[in-house]
Amino acid sequence: MKKYLLLTWMRLRKNFVEHKLIMTFYCAGTIICNRIFVEVFSSVPDLYEQYLEQRTSWAAELLLLKLLEATLIYAICFCGCAYLYKCVFDLNREQNVILSMLGASKRKVITICLLETSILTISGNLLADLSAVFFYRLDILAYIVILVSVVLLSALTTLPFFIPYIRKPILDSYRNFRDLE
């Protein structure tokens, strides 16, 4: 694991040095996604409670609209993350080829890619949530809830990795040694 982390750290450093803009967009994108996601979803429980109390079609519509809004925002965030993942994986194409040439199996290359994106998304989400704690001066319970949300959101934003469109650049670079020539 220590060696995987070392390789991941090397890759992160290389990407931040060579591709500052795309990596900044990636981190900023993760933070923005987190804030929008939390803001939208945080009002859902109140609206649901309101609906339970009033049982009116107006309250139901409001809840439904909020859920639709949240879903739409998540879908946009998801596509954004998916695209950014693809960019990050494209940046690593050459390095993946070198690693596979030196004896990394497909599984190892994918593990390193996943570790890299996980570190980026987790730190992005953590940063966003901790800044919320700092700015809104939340209590310890809110802090715990936020930590749980970091884990959940990080898991959610890792979902795009399982889309073939995202995985393809990694597998392509692994298979296609000719890219290096």
Binding site: K3, M10, R13, V17, Q95, L99, G103, L180
Partner: peptide, 18 residues
């Protein structure tokens, strides 16, 4: 096919990390 930003030692040790 070396990692230009890294030193010689790091590049040479790469195959050993697997």
């Amino acid at each position: 096919s070396l990692l230009e930003k890294y030193n010689v030692k790091t590049n040479v040790m790469l195959p050993l990390l697997f």
